[in-house]
Amino acid sequence: MRTVLSNKITQSAVDNPKFVALTGDHGYALFDEIRKTRPEQFLNVGMIEQAMIGLAAGLTQVGHQTLVYGLASFIPMRVIEQIKLDVCYSKLPVKIIGDGAGVVYSVLGCSHHCAEDVSCLRSLPHIEIYSPGDPEELRICYDESMAYEGPTYLRVGKCDNPAINTEKLTSTKPYLTHEVLDSDTLFVTTGAMLGIIHEYAKEFKVNHLSIMKLKPLDESLAEILPKYKRIVCFEEHTRYGGLTSALTDFMIDRQIPIPTMHPFNLEDKFANHCGSHQYALSEHNLSNEQIRSRLSDLASEF
């Protein structure tokens, strides 16, 4: 994923002389290429994350194309008010990337865990939210976000899950990675859950839908969702305001009867102990093994 992101950022600099990538002293290897080939279009502002959002807004207001990068626990979490007032208020096309979302930086602890970014940003007007799950989803999300005339947030999570897409995607619309015509169960994932849940969908012989754009949700869901009696949602994000919330909000707003929902998500708590990414997920009953076990318990419904 990071190679795709690095290449994309460098390509944006090549395509537009007014493109500037800003970072608050994060993303060392990610920016190797742009630093080497387009150093004048890369700006490490220092650890001034809050001012960095303002700087990006000001640069954008006078005609530059800006991309702001940080770890999700800082960008957007530390700078949420700056995003709201400096960027979203004026619908400035500042492109925000939050890396390491979820509990990817497991051993670093709660300061670097980010379970709430989508939730916070979904409530801000004008901003679009992308949450890709493999390199190809990242590529299309990046391209669409750059083309959007307003602010965007690109949530980048765990990088090393199996990639699903071997062919080019043509849009960020929700798509089935696995279809079982006689099943009325739908697994829905966003972001890093894509690869593992795709495997489980095959194993449990149910449908699997990937949603990489969380705001706004694509209208095609109004036709897709009513086809299923139960929907199981998977996200490395808190239950509040993430994928499950977005889907139920979507159905409520359109008077679509809500089917049985089974949310799989980060629980409403901070990490207790240190450990690997899978260990950190296990504290939320969300490790690969736990998900499989929980699905087995539900399987009689499928």
Binding site: Q50, A57, G58, T60, Q61, V62, H64, L85
Partner: peptide, 22 residues
């Protein structure tokens, strides 16, 4: 937007940076 204090100055500096770059 100057309602929440401490916002306008970084934005203004971003504008100055952009203009200087040009």
């Amino acid at each position: 937007l100057g309602g929440s204090l401490g916002h306008g100055l970084p934005v203004a500096i971003g504008m100055a940076l952009g203009l200087k770059r040009e």
